[in-house]
Simulated scan of single mutants.
Amino acid sequence: MKEASFYEKVGEGKVRCGLCRFRCLIADGHRGICAVRENRKGTLFSLVYGKAVAEHVDPVEKKPLYHFQPGSLTYSIATVGCNFRCLHCQNYSISQPEGERLRIAGNDLTPEEAVRRAVAAGCRSISYTYTEPTIFFEYAYDIAILARRAGLRNIFVTNGYITPEALSAIAPYLDAANIDLKGFSERFYREVVHAMLDQVLESILEYKRLGIWIELTTLIIPNWNDSDEDLAGIARFIAQRVGPDTPWHVSQFYPTFKLTDQPRTPIETLRRARQIGLDSGLRFVYEGNVPGAGGENTWCPSCSRLLIRRYGYTIRENLLDAGRCPQCGTLLPGVEQ
């Protein structure tokens, strides 16, 4: 265990956690919503520090990040637990606890060893992913500092519910994030995610303000968040508030976990979403989870030249010249090195 960051004692043995936007009030002997931060006699502890439940070497495109060190490898790491309760979670076996007393599974892995493994695997970054990096903040923070010293970049794959104070603390070491913007209605967030949309929107803008490269992902679920109104709302928010150069990934849903009553997202819906994004002024909209369907490629926003051709998470052709279009010289937004 490790004493948690971002909490305050509020009397009667209770503590107020300030790590994520739920700001849980936790009584002695209890845990927060994430189920991995526990109050023991007025001291809040992280129960997952150094407990890696998953580690893999992935293409950075899998995060998905298409404009951040394209074609590179990233060392992905996670602990158990999450502060969301998404009905369609793909990684529910490690993210969603069975009741409050989540069993803290995982293998011992020090921050030093995690960085060593990333370097040995030829990775250029470390991704804190699979569950929710916010809930294992202390572990991610210590790894991120060592990773930066070793010449590696750091990536969050996140639901966007971190508090401004916690994000500001890790921002000097955080280079990129893919943030899920799961829908665009409070009803969707309340009933499917069990969180609040406005808090996610505020968080996205905070990432942007701090200069962290961000890409956004929306998993499109039939009959839940696939209306023209919802998709146009997301696209306008990104184009007008975050910036038209922000990549938006619209991904195919498939039935899983507690949301098995909806069909797989039709490719036509992804095409419609992509067109809505482009019509709203976004320059880079990608279709996800449908390899070979044609919506994965990157085109020059100035001259329409094909710059990066992809199949799934694999880059088949990269024509960028020092990050620029070889035809017109336009610099592709993102992080090349």
Rank of each mutant, 00 (worst) to 15 (best):
P97K: 11
L19M: 12
G233C: 09
Y286E: 10
P222T: 10
V36I: 14
Y254D: 07
T314W: 09
I179C: 01
I170K: 00
E3C: 05
R209H: 09
Q327R: 14
K182M: 05
N39C: 11
P326W: 06
R37T: 07
L197W: 07
G312E: 10
F284Y: 15
C24I: 06
A147G: 15
G312F: 10
Q90S: 13
Q240S: 14
Y189F: 14
P64Y: 08
L44A: 03
R85D: 14
F284S: 03
R272S: 05
D230E: 15
I33C: 12
K41F: 06
P291I: 11
S304H: 15
Y173M: 09
G11W: 09
L146W: 10
S95N: 05
Y130K: 10
L307K: 03
E138W: 11
D198Q: 13
I212G: 04
M1G: 12
N289W: 07
F84P: 00
E38P: 07
G18W: 09
C20N: 10
C86F: 02
A273D: 11
F84L: 15
A150E: 02
L25W: 05
P301E: 04
K208V: 07
I179R: 03
L19E: 07
C325K: 00
S302K: 14
E98V: 13
N159A: 13
R309N: 09
P222W: 09
E8G: 07
L146H: 07
K2D: 12
L331H: 11
N91H: 13
F257I: 04
T330W: 04
T330L: 13
R309G: 00
R283L: 09
E287N: 03
K51L: 08
Q327N: 14
Q240P: 00
F184A: 02
A35M: 07
C328T: 02
D180N: 13
R241F: 01
I143H: 02
L259I: 12
C17V: 08
T158V: 00
D175W: 05
G18V: 02
A166V: 04
Y313D: 14
Y7K: 07
S304Y: 12
K2G: 08
G50C: 07
H88D: 07
R116I: 02
R236L: 08
G323P: 09
C325L: 09
L259K: 12
E98F: 11
T256V: 15
G71T: 04
V192N: 01
L332V: 06
K258R: 15
I162Q: 06
L152R: 05
V157S: 08
E215A: 08
R37L: 13
R190Y: 03
R117P: 00
V57P: 02
N223W: 13
E55W: 09
E112I: 03
G106H: 06
T43S: 12
T246C: 14
L201F: 03
A35V: 05
P97N: 12
P64F: 06
L219P: 09
Q199K: 15
S227K: 11
S304I: 00
Q327W: 02
R305P: 00
Y75K: 04
K41R: 15
I315C: 11
D279F: 08
T269K: 15
R271P: 04
I126W: 03
P326I: 04
L210P: 02
T314A: 14
L259A: 14
N178Y: 06
V285W: 03
E206W: 03
P255N: 07
I26Y: 02
G233P: 03
L332F: 01
R124Q: 14
L219C: 13
